[in-house]
Amino acid sequence: MINALVKLGRNTLSVLAGVGSASIMLFQSIVGKPQPLKMFPLLIRQLYVVGVQSMLIILISGLFIGMVLGLQGYTILVDFGAEQALGPMVSLSLLRELGPVVTALLFAGRAGSALTAEIGLMKATEQLSSLEMMAVDPLRRVVAPRFWAGFISMPLLALMFSAIGIYGGFIVGVQWLGVDDGAFWSVMQANVEWGQDILNGFIKSLVFALVVTWIALYKGYTAEPTSPGISAATTQTVVYSSLAVLGLDFVLTAIMFS
C-alpha cells in the first residue's frame, strides 16, 4: 500500500518534471528575437517534410472515412426515413470530431514519429552538440522550424481531411445510394454553422497540432542517444500523442459543444 503510494508519488513527480522541462524547451525554442531571413527557408523545408509529405495519407484516409460514414449513415438513417439527414451527419462528424482527431492521430504516426527519430538521430550522431559548439542554438535552429511547421500543417491537413471526407460521403450517399443531391447539400447547410462547427473544429486541430508536435520534438530531443533509446522514444511519441489527443478531445468537446 505504502509502496504503491510511493510509486504514485514518484511517477507524478517525474511526469511534472517532464512537463516542466518540455515547457522550458518549447519556450526557449520559440521565444526570442525572430530572424525571418534565416528562419524562412528552414520553415519551408520543414513544411515540405512535415506537411506536404503527410498530405497523401491524409487525403486518402479522409476520402475513405467519408465514404464509410456515408455508407453506415445511410443504412441507419434509411430505416427512419431520414436519409436526408445524411449530409449533416457526415459533415458534422467530420468537422467536429473525425477531421481533427483522425488527422492528429495519423499525423502523430506519420510526421510525429519521423520528427522524433530525426532529432534523436541528430542527437546520437552528435549533430546537436556540434551545432552548440559552432555557437548555433539547436533549439532555435532545429527544433523551432519543425515546431512551426507542425503547428501550421496539421490544421491545414485537418481542413483537407474534412473537405475530402464530406466529398467522399457525397459520392457514396448521392452518386451511389441515391440520396437527393439538393437535399444532401441544403440540409447540410441548414445544420452546419461556420462558428460552431468549422471554427471549433479548427481550434481543436490547432490544440492537437501544438500537443503532437511538442511531444514529438521533446521526445526526440531528450531521447537516449542510442538505437534502442531512439526507437523507444519514437514509440512513446505515437503512444503519448495519441492518448493526449483523445483525452484533450473529450475536454475540448465538453467545453465547446455542451
Binding site: 550522431t125 549533430q127 556540434s130 552548440e132 559552432m134 555557437a135
Partner: peptide, 30 residues
Amino acid sequence: RKRMSMLFQSGALFSDLTVFENVAFPLREH
C-alpha cells in the same frame, strides 16, 4: 565558442547537407 571548434568522434556532419554546404554552414551562420 566561435573562437574554438570541436571535431566529434562521429564527425557530426549534418546529414541533410552536402559536404560543401556542411563546410559553408558556420560561415553562413556567423
